[in-house]
């Protein structure tokens, strides 16, 4: 195997500098759960590896006074899955994390690595779109912020430019009494999703939907959200008919692949059921509060 130069900078600025200097052959490495597997298979052979493991700032989790949560890019899936501070609508992100792969992979993989790789069937992307997250990216010119909806450009492409690294995921406070839910269908426990549905839902005292963001994973180049479909339910009581209408409209926007996990046709058929199930679970979770 070809030797690569290995760097382990202590600051984001240093990481960006080394990556920028390395040019095309440089790659950041976080958990390594995807990158090292690709290196072992000789799919990628980086000249320069920049480990983000020693950058303290990337490992932090925090909540600002306004309720915005900041998840450092190096937070492991296990940490996010068990983050007790991710409650209400923001819990959708913890629930997605808890369904990634299996315990040893959750001990390794990071949120920054997962969204940078942007597997179309990964679990975080739809959850982050449902949670209306913003991605913080550091580059030679400092930090910039990209809404999750504009971050995932489709089929493994993201808004991250060469020389940049993802430094954090920011979650705005969800509306009061909102509930987040993540529904994933996979062939066996720990596999990537055939399809998944992430939603953040809030109702008023009368049971009318006051807030809804819903995104589908595994059925397109990136997570698919359809505000037009959501509008069929917002402002109304979420009846089975309305939810079915939402699903019918949303399915029009999906663009799934045929692959070894399932056919595109199959995926289109299961998404409405996953949506119905996600609503059911979210509404059940709200029950005691209502």
């Amino acid at each position: 195997m070809m030797a690569a130069t290995f760097h382990k900078p202590a600051t984001v600025d240093d990481a960006v500098r080394v990556l920028t200097d390395a040019g095309e052959g440089g790659r950041p490495i976080s958990g390594g759960a995807t990158l090292v597997a690709m290196m072992n298979a000789k799919l990628v052979e980086p000249d320069v590896l920049v480990s983000l493991s020693a950058i303290a700032e990337l490992k932090d989790f925090g909540r600002a006074p306004d309720g915005t949560v900041r998840i450092g890019a190096m937070r492991r899936h296990r940490e996010t899955a068990f983050e007790s501070d991710l409650a209400g609508g923001q819990a959708v992100v913890a629930k997605a994390a808890s369904q990634i792969a299996n315990p040893p992979v959750r001990n390794m993989g990071t949120i920054g690595g997962s969204i940078s790789f942007a597997d179309p069937a990964a679990d975080y992307p739809p959850a982050l779109v449902a949670a209306d997250a913003t991605i913080e990216i550091a580059g030679p010119d400092g930090r910039r912020f990209v809404p999750a909806e504009e971050f995932f450009l489709g089929w493994y492409e993201t808004a991250v430019e060469p020389g940049e690294i993802v430094t954090a995921v920011l979650l705005p406070p969800a509306p009061d009494r909102a509930v987040g839910h993540y529904e994933k269908l996979c062939r066996v426990a720990g596999d990537f999703a055939l399809a998944s549905v992430a939603l953040v839902l809030a109702l008023d005292g009368a049971g009318t939907v006051t807030h809804l963001r819903l995104a589908v994973g595994g059925c397109g180049g990136g997570p698919v959200r359809c505000p037009e479909a959501e509008a069929l339910v917002v402002g109304a009581v979420p009846s089975a008919e309305r939810i079915a209408a939402l699903a019918e409209r949303l399915v029009e926007d999906l663009d799934p692949v045929d692959d070894s996990r399932g056919s595109a046709e199959y995926r289109l058929q299961i998404v409405p059921r996953l949506i119905a199930k996600a609503f059911e679970e979210a509404l059940t979770e709200m029950e005691p509060a209502r």
Binding site: W155, V257, D258
Partner: peptide, 17 residues
């Protein structure tokens, strides 16, 4: 080869893009 690993379904989406 390397790109073939992604499977025909995925490569078709990428090629279309």
């Amino acid at each position: 080869g390397r790109l073939g690993r992604y499977g025909a379904g995925m490569m078709k989406k990428i090629a279309t893009k």
